[in-house]
Design a protein around this nucleic acid. Structure first.
Length: 241
DNA sequence: CTATTTGTTATCGT
DNA sequence: TACGATAACAAATA
């Protein structure tokens, strides 16, 4: 699934493909109508890609969205034309969104956890505002820290050795959390950098340490699968506390 | 048919 | 009343 690292890669691709060019947006399935503008900048905010010019095209990939150089196959919901080149917003499950705004309103999004290197006290300060609950649902609250989804939360907590069920108020391993978050996000961007992002669940090996694994990548013990706020949580009780 | 999967948002319950 | 947990929603697939 696309999360912060995948959206970061998308933005880098869009910058390379569209920035400084006259771009025509051909709307096939979003209802925003065909548009045209000179793209002056492409920015990422949390899990949203912002294509900016006279107006802003807001791209959210949700579950199955991706933007790739045009090709015959794939369920294309919109197409970006730049001269002789074109790029397709493909989205098999059609949960992605593309909207047009004058100015993107990010007032309900918290600060970015990356690429700025945040330290343990920064994470503690941001997440302490989340109240009394468990750390994992709190990590995913976009108004506290913007851009972490279910997979990232599972993986970061595993790398930090923190149980997803630990109450935020009793957490002491803040430096480990900060390091794990930065390492996970940086490493995932580096590993997945490509013109097309390949998501899990469509063949290929599981690239994650605990997410959708049956056994712990570190110690081999069985991975526990649970649910928090109706989202799947994976953890190794031997490696995480 | 059901069970999944996502982020967002609405609603329920304590 | 406020906050945390739960469920609904969008759509498609196995």
């Amino acid at each position: 699934m696309p999360e912060l690292p995948e959206v970061e890669i998308l933005c880098r691709n869009l910058r390379r493909w569209l920035k400084g060019r006259e771009v025509r947006l051909e709307d096939l399935d979003f209802g925003c109508g065909d548009r045209q503008m000179v793209v002056t900048e492409v920015r990422r905010r949390a899990k949203v890609a912002l294509i900016q010019g006279n107006e802003t095209w807001v791209v959210h990939l949700r579950m199955t969205g991706k933007v790739v150089p045009s090709r015959p196959e794939g369920r294309t919901r919109a197409r970006f034309h730049a001269g002789a080149d074109s790029y397709d917003f493909e989205d098999t499950r059609r949960l992605g969104t593309l909207s047009v705004v004058d100015r993107f309103d990010d007032s309900r999004l918290g600060p970015e956890p990356w690429p700025v290197e945040r330290d343990g006290s920064w994470w503690q300060q941001q997440l302490a505002r989340g109240g009394r609950g468990a750390i994992k649902p709190t990590l995913m609250r976009q108004e506290l820290v913007a851009g972490l989804g279910n997979i990232a939360a599972n993986e970061i907590l595993f790398e930090a050795g923190i149980s997803p069920y630990r109450l935020t108020s009793t957490l002491t391993r803040w430096t480990e959390l900060a390091d794990a978050a930065h390492r996970y996000l940086t490493e995932t961007v580096r590993r997945e950098q490509a013109d097309e992002i390949h998501y899990i669940n469509q063949g290929g090996p599981n690239p994650f340490q605990v997410y959708q694994r049956t056994h712990c990548a570190r110690c081999g013990a069985p991975v526990r699968k649970g649910r928090q706020q109706s989202r799947s949580s994976f953890d190794c009780s031997a490696c995480q506390s």
